[in-house]
Nucleic acid binder design. Structure first.
Length: 391
DNA sequence: ACTCCTTTGAAGTGC
DNA sequence: GCACTTCAAAGGAGT
């Protein structure tokens, strides 16, 4: 494992204990990994493909089972993907919030040079100005102390009236093209990839996306005096926001089974579902999945994820730290955008899973089940984070 | 149409 | 503080 002497001084996760859930076989595999690290990827790929194809055509149910397929993958996966996972590492994440200005020249889609307010340039924190009368995302709309706004009306102002108009994110970031209907078709440069389906956008619109909000924060803060800040009830949604009414629509009349009245239920359904920020591994998966799919023709996500899990473990501490860093920034931004959000809010948003086939009661009283796939003793705990990790 | 599978990590809950 | 649970993504497979 590339990780991490989780010493107490390790700010990557000093308090977290690294529990390897690799079994002994995987230890051996680790050695084999080194030995086979130079194997021709094409050979492995073709082997994988062949075996996969054989599996799919075989009448042997043992062979066709997913588990046997995964065994096959496991056999071939040792040291399989040694290419740097950063060969195409995009500058996806909002860089360290305190260093945004320094990084903006690198092509960060969210920022233009000089977009940050002085406070943002010098602070590690996203400037937060919380006004009770503003919508929840207002924290990102800090007002710039910049006393010298541009004399010419910015694009956010109507050329006719000089009054503020709501800037569309497409105007703020190249990543947010306008959809034909005028609704913002938001895609997150981090992996909310172009063409990816957009999460539910309620009529009134949601808060702006991370990048859009940040772009707004950046650009507007230097352009607008407080009274000029336009409404941000744009028709934009963050991919993390899912309209419950659209994505989580219960089919029965009383899915929650707790006597929720129709009105309450409707309200609940319409309440946007703010998703969890992606963790380091999820970010890694999002980035690497297409490569793995292309490399081994596998499409089954479960199999892909197993491969990605192994590749994740094969990453060096430094490599992993990049993703931990990205994830940390995601969480920071998420918390800035949704200060009151809790992961608990989403409990029960998914269909519950069973544990050992037994129904289980979730914290909210719903039937649930745990990660049945993780065998006893292999269940993971939070591993230590890379060296520069900060909560 | 819906759920499961499979991975790791963050965060929540309960003791 | 520990153990456990849930949910983030993904898409094929199974019901």
């Amino acid at each position: 494992m590339p990780q991490l002497d989780g010493g107490g001084g390790d700010d990557l996760g000093a308090n977290d204990e690294l529990i390897s859930f690799k079994d002994e076989g995987e230890q051996e595999e680790k050695t084999a990994e080194n030995v086979s690290s130079e194997r021709d990827l094409d050979d492995v790929k073709s082997s994988l493909v062949n075996e996969t194809e054989n599996n799919s055509s075989s009448s042997d149910s043992e062979v066709t089972s997913l588990s046997s397929l995964l065994m096959t993958i496991a056999q071939h996966d040792s040291g399989l993907f040694k290419a740097s996972p950063y060969a195409t590492y995009p500058l996806l994440m909002i860089p360290d919030l305190g260093n945004l200005a320094n990084l903006s020249h690198l092509g960060n889609p969210y920022l233009s040079p000089g977009a940050l307010s002085p406070s943002a340039r010098t602070s590690n924190k996203v400037p937060v100005v919380q006004h009770g009368h503003l919508p929840p995302f207002s924290p990102l709309l800090s007002y710039s102390p910049d006393p010298f706004p541009p004399r010419t009306p910015p694009p956010h102002l109507s050329p006719d009236t000089g009054l503020p108009r709501t800037p569309h994110p497409a105007e703020l970031s190249p990543y947010y093209p306008l959809s034909p209907g005028g609704m913002g078709h938001m895609t997150h440069p981090l992996g909310w990839l172009p063409g990816q389906s957009v999460y539910g956008i309620p009529a009134g619109g949601f808060r702006p996306s991370y990048p859009a909000a940040l772009a707004m924060n950046s650009s507007m803060s230097s352009r607008f005096s407080p009274h000029m800040v336009p409404s941000l009830q744009t028709s934009v949604s963050h991919p993390a926001i899912v309209s419950t009414a659209i994505k989580q629509e219960p089919r029965d009349g009383n899915r929650h089974g707790c006597g929720v009245s129709m009105g309450d239920r409707e309200k609940e359904e319409k309440k946007p579902h703010v998703k969890k920020p992606l963790n380091a591994f999820m970010l890694y998966m999002k980035e690497q999945r297409p490569k793995v799919v292309a490399e081994c023709t596998l499409k089954e996500s479960a199999a892909i994820n197993q491969i990605l899990g192994r590749r994740w473990h094969s990453l060096s501490r430094e490599e992993q730290s990049k993703y931990y860093d990205m994830a940390r920034k995601e969480r920071q931004l998420h918390s800035q955008l949704y200060p009151g959000w809790s992961a608990r809010d989403n409990y029960g948003k998914r269909k519950k899973r069973k544990r050992d086939g037994r129904p289980e009661t979730a914290p909210d009283g719903q039937i649930t089940h745990t990660q049945s796939a993780a065998p006893e003793g292999k269940r993971h705990r939070t591993p230590p984070r890379p060296e520069n990790y900060e909560k």
